[in-house]
Each structure stands twice: as C-alpha cells, then as structure tokens.
Amino acid sequence: MTHPNRINSLAPSAYDALLVLSQESEEFAERAGLSPGVAELVKIRASQINGCAFCLRMHSKQAREQGETPDRLAVLSAWRETEYFTPEERAALSLTEKTTLIATAGSPYEHEREQMVLSNDQIAAVQWIVIAINAFNRVAVISEFDVKP
C-alpha cells in the first residue's frame, strides 16, 4: 500500500532525479579524492541536524560497514569538542553545518579554514553530498518513512 504522504511515490521521476543527483555527487566526491567514510559522516551529520531518523539509521549502518566506530558515531553531533576526527573530517563537518544551516550558520561562501585542508573540488563534493542528503532528509521526514526497531 502506498502511503498517501510519500512524495517519492507520487512523483517518481522527481525522486529518480534525486537518486541520480546523489549518485553523481558520490562519483564527483570519489574523483575529488574525498573518502567514502567522510561522505558518510557528512550524511549522518546533516541527518542529525535535520532530525531524519530514516537516513540516520541507514547511513550509520553504512558507516559501520565501512569500518566506522560506534565511539566516533556517538560523539559526531559534538565533533568540535572531541579529538576523534581528522582535519579532513572536521573541515567536511564544518561545511556540512554551513550548508545545512544556510540561513543561520554564517556565510556558506567563506571557506578559508576548509581550504587549508580540502581542495576546491573536495569542498564542492561535500556541498553536493550535503545538498543531496538534505533533500533526502526532507523527503523521508515529510513522507513519514517508517523507522521501526
């Protein structure tokens, strides 16, 4: 049975375009030299900010499958207060917050700190991944995707 609020079912071609955007973002990130682990952390952090349980569960599982530790995942929302994350990861997480919280997190155009660690292509890759996951978060939340134990 199709849930009446699931916009992915009501406009499947739009959802398919979002899937393509996500895939293109991942491929661009790989070409830019951004590790898949960093991409998963970015998706999880954006999903934390957006309160998307469906995406949090999915990307936390994928991160663990790639070798991410439960300890690091447990403190991800407070990444600034820990020594768990590499400079590359910290730069990507900072960009994630700037891009997700675009109205309140300061200028999304100021990347001086991030440019000390990430290339311009890596910055763009993080931003595209964040744009895609933010869209997926919104689809999942407004469509009331099931998140059962």
Results as ranks from 00 to 15, higher is better:
Ile142Cys: 03
Asp71Met: 08
Ala46Trp: 03
Leu10His: 06
Leu101Ser: 15
Ile129Thr: 10
Arg138Leu: 07
Asn8His: 11
Phe85Trp: 12
Ile133Phe: 00
Ile7Gln: 00
Ala53Pro: 13
Cys55Trp: 06
Ile129Lys: 04
Ala105Asn: 02
Asp71Gln: 12
Lys98Trp: 14
Tyr84Gln: 09
Glu97Tyr: 12
Glu30Arg: 00
Ala46Val: 00
Ile142Trp: 08
Leu41Tyr: 04
Thr82Lys: 01
Glu144Leu: 15
Ala53Asn: 13
Thr96Glu: 07
Ser60Asn: 11
Gly67Glu: 10
Ala132Glu: 04
Glu110Ser: 13
Val75Pro: 02
Ser143Glu: 12
Leu118Gln: 09
Leu10Tyr: 04
Ile129Gln: 07
Ile133Cys: 05
Leu101Ala: 10
Val139Leu: 03
Trp79Asn: 04
Gln115Thr: 05
Val75Lys: 05
Cys52Arg: 07
Met116Cys: 09
Ser94Val: 02
Gln122Thr: 00
Ser13Phe: 04
Glu30Phe: 03
Tyr109Glu: 15
Ser9Val: 11
Glu97Gln: 14
Trp79Phe: 10
Thr104Pro: 01
Arg80Met: 06
Ile123Asn: 13
Glu65Ser: 06
Gly37Trp: 01
Leu34Pro: 02
Glu114Asn: 06
Asp71Gly: 10
Asn137Ser: 09
Ala39Met: 13
Lys61Thr: 15
Phe85Cys: 04
Tyr15Ala: 03
Arg113Pro: 02
Glu24Leu: 07
Glu26Trp: 02
Pro108Lys: 15
Thr86Gly: 11
Ser119Glu: 00
Arg64Asp: 11
Glu26Ser: 04
Phe28Pro: 01
Glu112Ile: 07
Arg72Met: 10
Pro4Cys: 07
Trp128Glu: 00
Thr86Val: 08
Val117Met: 10
Arg138Val: 05
Ser13Val: 05
Thr100Gln: 04
Met116Glu: 11
Lys148Trp: 13
Val147Cys: 15
Trp128Ala: 05
Thr100Lys: 08
Gln66Glu: 10
Leu101Trp: 11
Leu41Ser: 04
Ser35Gly: 10
Lys61Gln: 15
Ser13Gln: 11
Ala124Ser: 00
Gln127Arg: 14
Ala53Thr: 12
Glu65Thr: 00
Glu68Asp: 13
Val38Glu: 13
Leu93His: 10
Phe28Ala: 01
Met116Trp: 09
Gln23Phe: 06
Pro108Thr: 15
Ala11Gln: 09
Ala46Leu: 03
Glu81Thr: 01
Pro36His: 09
Arg80Ser: 01
Leu18Gln: 04
Arg45Ile: 03
His59Arg: 13
Thr96Phe: 09
Gly37Pro: 05
Ala92Cys: 15
Ile49Ser: 06
Asn134Cys: 12
Gln122Lys: 08
Met1Ile: 10
Ile123His: 12
Trp128Lys: 04
Gln122Ala: 02
Ile44Ala: 06
Ile44Asn: 05
Ala74Arg: 15
Glu24Trp: 06
Ala39Glu: 10
Asn120Tyr: 00
Leu18Ser: 06
Glu27Val: 08
Leu73Phe: 00
Gln62Leu: 15
Lys148Thr: 15
Arg64Pro: 13
Asp121Asn: 07
Pro87Leu: 11
Glu30Ile: 02
Val130Asp: 00
Ile129Ser: 02
Pro149Ala: 12
Leu93Ala: 09
Arg31Ser: 04
Glu83His: 14
Val141Ala: 02
